[in-house]
């Protein structure tokens, strides 16, 4: 299991109810179910991945987070996970709002567009950045709304979303992000992991 998933798993308490939005082939869900006694549900857009998850005995619904999150009653989960897909939505703000409706807490991870390699790619090569976490060309990327760790940080404070935890991930190493080191972490990290909750 990749490092990012390990960090997400650590953020989640045992014996809770979790919705994994864009659960892929269910690796994280299976881990949470088997090791933390978590009641997991997945929402996944790819039919193939749904088949794989069903075969693992996981409960997964084929669907699109932008349309199908509303079917879940308010606060029906303790946590909802959104791993590196926020940037692919037409309306990320609405998705965040929906996440915080269906669950009390959301764990959102983003590929950081502020990472120095991304910045230097654009600065020196003058073309859209292609990195390990952003492997697609501009003309076929599913990513519509790229953002940086700093963008997400600012977004939360502007929208009154409580940031419980902000973790920077770089080459398997993690560190906490705070106001003091924000600019540095925004430059040095490939992925940002955020545990958020609605203020109200």
């Amino acid at each position: 299991m990749k490092k990012e998933f390990k960090i997400i798993a650590q953020l989640i308490e045992n014996n809770t109810r979790v919705l994994d939005v864009g659960c892929g082939d269910g690796i994280l869900m299976k881990y949470l179910k088997d090791n933390k006694n978590i009641d997991t549900r997945g929402l996944e857009i790819s039919k193939n991945n749904v088949q794989v998850c069903i075969g693992k005995g996981l409960t997964v619904i084929e669907g699109n987070a932008e349309k199908d999150l509303q079917q879940f009653p308010n606060s029906s989960f303790d946590y909802v996970i959104l791993s590196q897909t926020l940037q692919a939505f037409y309306n990320p703000e609405k998705v965040i709002n929906d996440l915080l409706k269906v669950a009390n807490k959301a764990i959102v991870t983003i590929p950081n567009f502020g990472y120095w390699k991304v910045r230097s790619h654009l600065l020196f090569k003058g073309t859209m950045p292609i990195t390990k976490d952003l492997p697609d060309e501009w003309y076929n990327t599913p990513n519509l709304h790229m953002c940086t760790i700093k963008d997400f940080f600012n977004f939360c404070s502007k929208k009154n979303i409580k940031l419980y935890k902000s973790i920077a991930l770089h080459e398997q190493k993690t560190s906490n992000i705070n106001k003091m080191n924000l600019n540095l972490k925004n430059l040095s990290s490939e992925v940002g992991i955020f545990l958020i909750e609605n203020e109200n």
Partner: peptide, 18 residues
């Protein structure tokens, strides 16, 4: 049906086959 089951907190999976 899926939505109703989710609303009742049931354990429900769904797939649409091509």
């Amino acid at each position: 049906i899926l939505i109703a089951l989710n609303a009742s907190g049931a354990d429900v999976g769904f797939i649409e086959i091509n």
